[in-house]
Design a protein around this nucleic acid. Structure first.
Lengths: 333, 333
DNA sequence: CTGTTAGCGCGTTCAA
DNA sequence: TTGAACGCGCTAACAG
């Protein structure tokens, strides 16, 4: 591997000069710059990133911590993050938190220890206080899918409460009055917020929230399956169910289909997330669009602008939107 | 940040001794080791990974290059890779190749330039020759989902031809004779191999392969949609269709359902990959299990053993297996 | 078993 | 505009 020294020898200049042409900034005469460039090309010179990092204390890397890598949710987000960062020659180091506080904190330590210049965090188990303190440390962080007032400028966030509201409101408009709810795990912020939205929609329409018509699922298909079984077993009547994410809808619908029910004729469903598969599930899912990939992109751009000082435009407003497809139907009278 | 020097001062030993206790290997008396450990703890010492990498020429990182990050396929693989590597304190840097030769090669350069100790590659567009040459370079590589005879020891591979065979054989056993095929992009190795398997199964049962009953899809839902429309338009009769992956089955089934058809009563389907969603699609997908997550894990373990010299057991045989669920049905006579 | 010393490759003063 | 020299924090001989 050619080093900066080899280049300087070949070009007949000093190390410092080579370093200068690499880092654009300083003033170098066009003539010597060309000599150096030629030498670099001839030697197929690639700077040693470790040496650069050691000397400059900047690694050009960002750590991304997500709850999980499998499942339909994080892939699109990671894809956007990778693309945006890679375009600016930064690299991304991944870590998984498994929605567990100890693991999440350990992962943060791991990534910081790895010398990441910044962190993108999608964490659920860790406390607000921890994140606030972390944000005051030397490594900049951006939070995805979480809102903490004290560090709101670092939060890339979708209004989950509004999303939950929209889901239920859609059913209400379709004439449904008895609406069941399959929630996400109550220890997850977004799950609680979505449920809050559901309850607000109910309240605004003068309907009481019936705890017996609410099941706490796990955000996975099985959660939908379990929820549906619970709801049927409850004996309570209901004409529609909203699930806190699309995976649970798919599980829920699968048990109905197995029972020979017609969906949405006999039961309406609204999901949440609008995962890519949602439109290919039968019936096509009516759901709330969750622009997770855009949020990933924005997180990356935010870092590019604020940490790496690139001159980039960053948009910043996200709103949940209803995507009406086929799984929810006007209530027959 | 405390440095190794600070620790050595506090412990009253030399830099080298501190380095020795960090890297376990060398002999250090238990007494001084304890002194050093205490000093490290007291200073909350964290080694600087850049300096370590620069001095040792080892970064404890592995680059993972995949075709895409979204979609249901790579998530489980990445999850296993991250978990296995992380357990040994290695970190993973991700890059995306987009099934494009130039991008793939660029990504390889990028990862090597980033100082990765090894690479896990899931590449499709790049040539065998390129990979063979790359494997002779200084950075060890492991290939996932691709077989190249000359470097077979570095290939983590599933027999796609056999998988394709099993899919079609299953339908044959169910009495189907007119079997359509929706293939993946012909420029992808696995797509061709799966199709080969399909053709072999047909041939072994004395059936002719009808090119008109074969459509080249794109491995996405839309590919299945397009394929199904093509097949119906062809006017040719068929009682079953095998799709080269589950996403295309889901697209294909969705058009049938839209047409009011009963699946599998009127048409049988077999997919490939056994993605997590396969069991929640309606009807539940009969498909070929593709243990991609295990392959990811094995790739990671292989590197741990052969590159990082960990003492780890690595299993190595993968076979595709049919998972019979509901989307394929005995042909009524 | 432990300390000294010389790099690893590059960024960055400070002079010239 | 350019060069010399030092330092980043750590590893790895080599000596003792």
């Amino acid at each position: 591997m050619a080093t900066i020294y080899d280049v300087s020898q070949l070009a007949g200049v000093s190390l410092a000069t080579v370093s200068r042409v690499m880092n654009k900034n300083a003033n170098v005469s066009e003539k010597t710059r060309q000599k150096v460039l030629a030498a670099m090309a001839q030697l197929d010179y690639k700077p040693n990133t470790f040496a650069q990092s050691l000397a400059s204390n900047c690694s050009n890397s960002v750590g991304v911590l997500v709850s999980q890598l499998d499942g339909p949710y994080y892939g699109p987000m990671m894809a956007e993050i990778e693309a945006s960062l890679r375009a600016e020659n930064k690299h991304v180091i991944i870590a998984v938190g498994h929605s567990n506080a100890a693991t999440e904190m350990d992962s943060v330590e791991f990534l910081i220890g790895r010398g990441c210049d910044a962190l993108i965090l999608d964490v659920e188990a860790v406390s607000d206080e921890y994140l606030i303190e972390l944000s005051q440390g030397p490594t900049p962080i951006v939070l995805i899918n979480r809102y903490i007032a004290q560090i709101s400028d670092r939060c890339i966030y979708l209004n989950n409460e509004l999303g939950g509201y929209l889901a239920t409101e859609h059913l209400l408009k379709l004439g449904h009055q008895e609406i069941a709810y399959i929630s996400g795990p109550k220890n997850k912020h977004d799950a609680c917020e979505r449920l809050d939205g559901h309850m607000r929609a109910l309240a605004e329409h003068g309907l009481a929230f019936d705890p017996q018509l609410c099941f706490e699922g796990n955000y996975k298909e099985e959660g939908g399956v379990d929820g549906m079984r619970y709801l049927f077993a409850s004996g309570k009547p209901f004409t529609a169910v909203v699930c806190a994410n699309d995976q649970m809808v798919s599980g829920a619908i699968s048990v109905c289909l197995e029972l020979g029910m017609k969906i949405p004729e006999q039961l309406s469903f609204v999901g949440y997330d609008n995962i890519p598969f949602a439109r290919y599930i039968s019936p096509k899912l009516t759901t709330i669009n969750n622009p997770i990939h855009e949020m990933g992109k924005m997180a990356a751009l935010w870092l590019l602008k604020n940490v790496f000082k690139n001159d980039i435009e960053v948009m910043s407003v996200f709103s949940p939107e209803l995507v009406a497809r086929e799984s929810a139907k006007q209530l027959a009278r």
